[in-house]
Amino acid sequence: MAGKARFCLQCGARLETRFLFGRDHPVCPQCGWIYFEDPKVAVAVLVERGEEVLLVQRLNPPLQGLWSLPAGFMDAHEDPARAAERECLEETGLVVRVTQLLGIVPGREHPSGADIVIAYRAEVVEGDLQAGDDAGKAAFFPRSALPPLAFRATQLILEGKIPQTHQHME
């Protein structure tokens, strides 16, 4: 069955799979409710200090021990730029201010990953660099000496290979 829903959120009946709108969807045979799985959206933040970039070491699987930009999932109804700032604070102890939307990286890299990663550039406002949340370490690295990276999205963002929108945030 497509998606993870097994029972109707409207009436509680067991869902069945029907081919609708070009693909299989869980559908309630009693009330007709259709389950549409929402995409998972993550945000990432690129913080630079001269020729260095801020990275965090993954504390948990998948790709435990490898490095990525500070990033994480958005909560429902959360502003993406504020989510990026929140994730950076949680993982690095640094309060940052988003200054630019860099672009969007599509494509789920692993089963529990995001379908969409929204990437921002940000600048440090205050705070002391210290790993937190699901980051084992947090550090600035020269672009010429990056540690092993966890995700294609991190690599693309660092290489500037996502669409450049040049939208500055106020």
Rank of each mutant, 00 (worst) to 15 (best):
E126M: 05
R49H: 05
G65Y: 03
P142N: 09
F151S: 10
P80L: 10
V125E: 13
Q64G: 02
F151Q: 09
A81H: 15
G107M: 10
C11G: 06
F141E: 00
A122I: 00
Q30R: 15
A84V: 13
E37Q: 13
K137E: 11
T154E: 00
A119H: 08
G107F: 01
H77Y: 08
G3A: 13
G107S: 15
M169K: 01
I34S: 01
G3V: 03
F19S: 12
Q57P: 00
L15I: 07
T99H: 02
G136Y: 05
L101K: 03
G113H: 07
V98L: 04
Q164H: 15
M74G: 05
Q155N: 00
P80Y: 13
V41K: 11
G113C: 07
A135N: 08
P29C: 02
H168T: 03
L129Y: 00
A81Q: 12
L46Y: 11
L101C: 02
V56M: 14
G12Y: 12
A81K: 09
W67I: 15
L66D: 04
D75L: 11
V124Q: 06
P147Y: 01
G160C: 13
G12H: 11
V95T: 12
K4T: 06
R6K: 12
R86N: 11
E51Y: 05
E109I: 06
R86F: 07
A114V: 11
L156Q: 14
L129I: 04
L66H: 13
R143Q: 10
L66T: 14
W33K: 01
V53A: 11
L146Q: 04
L66Q: 14
L46G: 01
I118W: 00
H166K: 14
V43L: 08
I162M: 05
V105Y: 06
T165Q: 07
V105D: 08
I162K: 06
G132S: 07
A119N: 07
G32Q: 09
C8P: 09
L102G: 14
A84E: 07
H166I: 01
L156H: 04
P148Y: 12
G127D: 05
V117S: 06
H25V: 07
G160W: 03
A5C: 05
A2L: 14
F36M: 07
L89N: 00
G107E: 09
R82E: 15
E126R: 12
G160Q: 09
A135K: 11
R58M: 11
R143V: 00
G12E: 08
P29N: 13
Q164E: 15
I116Y: 13
L59V: 04
M74C: 15
L94R: 02
T99D: 03
A138L: 03
F141A: 03
K4H: 07
V47I: 09
C11S: 06
T99W: 01
C11E: 10
F19D: 08
I116T: 06
R97C: 07
S68W: 04
L129M: 05
E87K: 15
A84D: 02
A5R: 15
C28L: 08
R143Y: 03
A153R: 06
R152K: 13
